[in-house]
Amino acid sequence: MNPDMPKPPARDWTMRILMLLLLALIVASFATLPLKWREFFTVDAINSTTELLAGFAPPETSSGFLAKTFWAAIETLAMSGLGTLLAVIFGLAFSLPASGRFGAAPRAAMRAVLNVLRSVPELVWASIMLIAAGLGPLGGTLALGAHTAGVLGRLFADSLENAAPLPEQSLRTNGANATAAFMYATLPQTLPQMMSYTLYRWENNIRAAAILGVVGAGGLGQMLKYHLSLFQMPLAATVILAMLLLVALVDAISFAMRRALTR
């Protein structure tokens, strides 16, 4: 071997060890969970499932019930939109200290707060908010805002940390104050990514808002719980179809907006 040639870089085993640990976790999950795959495909299970699904047909199509479903869908859409807007406002405010702009101690403290916000599921937040605000869409909206603020705050903070520091430093060197340098140098770098994160979370919040209605937060979820509890399957089928259409509509709008941002 030529002594003048550079030595090959040392092999990094960190990623391989992590992959092996992940594989071991997956194997352990299958080994410890009582997954009864055979019972899932028995004749009784198939007949019961077929009978249940047959009860949903045909969906309820009376004009009065369709109008009620339409307004419940609007309520679900409003819950998700307002909850996401609140999350963006608070997430952006939380992301500034969480990105380390005010020092290491505020960064660690705010990251801990964001961890708590996003670790608590929306259903738990909804239960808390419904106790404080009563039944209805307000509790669901606040629950979506609290959980999503933790998610977006973390994502926004990571975007700010990964932004190139040179443009802001150049403006500060030339006499610009900290706020102006941030607004004109760092924020424009991260704004498209933040918008993409926001639109994606809005899609998720549409689904979450439908689920939160099950605990009394209003919208389509509350209708679905009511009709399923009374075994009114055709009415429940109409609500489920409305959920699917609403999610598909929001997905299409979000996809179009994300494409427009990346052009």
Rank of each mutant, 00 (worst) to 15 (best):
W202Y: 14
D12L: 05
L22G: 09
T49F: 12
I211L: 15
I240H: 03
L33T: 05
G219L: 03
L187K: 13
G175R: 07
Q169C: 01
D44W: 00
T238C: 05
A57W: 15
L160C: 01
G150Y: 14
V215A: 09
P165G: 10
A109Q: 07
G81A: 14
A178Q: 14
F231C: 04
P121I: 09
F70I: 02
L86A: 13
K225Q: 10
L82N: 01
L228E: 07
T262C: 00
L142Y: 12
R207I: 02
P234G: 11
N177D: 15
T148A: 15
T186C: 07
R201F: 08
G219W: 06
A24H: 03
R101Y: 14
A24Q: 03
S48A: 15
I128P: 03
D251R: 03
V151C: 05
L152M: 14
P8F: 10
P58N: 06
V88Q: 01
L241I: 11
S159I: 00
T190K: 00
L220Q: 03
E122R: 01
A180W: 15
V27A: 11
G153I: 10
Q169G: 06
A210V: 13
A45Y: 10
T238A: 09
I128K: 04
A73Q: 07
S80N: 02
K68Q: 15
M233A: 11
T179Q: 05
T190L: 04
A10L: 15
T186S: 15
L130R: 00
A104Y: 13
A164P: 02
L138R: 12
I89R: 01
A93E: 00
L22R: 00
L117A: 06
L199F: 15
P137W: 14
Y226R: 10
G64K: 04
F94N: 00
M110E: 02
R107Q: 15
S29L: 07
I131A: 13
M129L: 09
T49Y: 12
F41Y: 08
N162D: 12
L241T: 01
S254H: 01
R111A: 12
L155K: 07
G136E: 06
I240P: 07
G216S: 10
T190V: 15
Y197W: 14
W13F: 10
I26A: 08
S119L: 07
A146H: 04
G219Y: 07
T49K: 01
I89V: 15
N115M: 12
S229I: 06
T50M: 09
L53G: 10
W125E: 04
A108Y: 09
A149N: 06
T141M: 13
E39M: 07
L142C: 04
E39P: 04
L92K: 05
A178F: 11
G218H: 06
L152S: 02
G139A: 06
A260F: 12
V215T: 03
